[in-house]
């Protein structure tokens, strides 16, 4: 009996592992400047219900061919355009940071020069959901 249970458990673990592999699959980042690489992971944040805040710890990594003072901005498009400076790296060729993402809308992350505020690279974190917003009020009950 217990060997059967082990087989079943292994099947479940295998399914979950495949899901995990799909989730962490990296995507190409749009880069405005060819000299810079700008990598933000993960690119997608999934919440259970449409309209609810989504939480994720995101890792931002950039690398440039020349040393520059660059700043990281978080841009929110809804309800109004809002550009917030998160941090700057002084005369660096590369930088890395981790941020706590919390939003129910997509957010854009931009890398800009401190001097002149030129946009070098940007990427968007997409918020998606499992259950569409509905008027129905669910009654979860297990057994």
């Amino acid at each position: 009996m217990y060997s059967s249970v082990c087989k079943g458990f292994a099947l479940l673990v295998f399914t979950l592992f495949n899901l995990f592999v799909l989730l962490v699959k990296a995507e190409e980042i749009p880069v405005i400047s060819a000299d810079i690489t700008f990598n933000v992971q993960p690119q997608q944040c999934v919440t259970l219900r449409q309209g609810r805040d989504c939480f994720a710890t995101i890792t931002i990594l950039w690398q440039n061919q020349t040393a520059q003072t660059l700043c990281l901005y978080q841009v929110r498009n809804e309800p109004a355009l809002n550009k917030e400076k998160l941090m700057c790296w002084s005369k660096s060729k590369k930088g890395q940071t981790s941020l706590e993402f919390e939003s129910h809308d997509n957010l854009t992350y931009q890398l800009r020069t401190l001097k002149g505020d030129h946009l070098l690279a940007e990427t968007e974190i997409v918020v998606s959901w499992l259950h569409k917003k509905t008027t129905r009020r669910r009654r979860w009950r297990l057994f």
Binding site: L16, L19, L23, V46, W129, L130, W140
Partner: peptide, 11 residues
């Protein structure tokens, strides 16, 4: 009972 989203289709 607890539920966690794994993707847009799986929890």
């Amino acid at each position: 009972y607890a539920q966690y989203p794994l993707s847009q289709s799986w929890s």
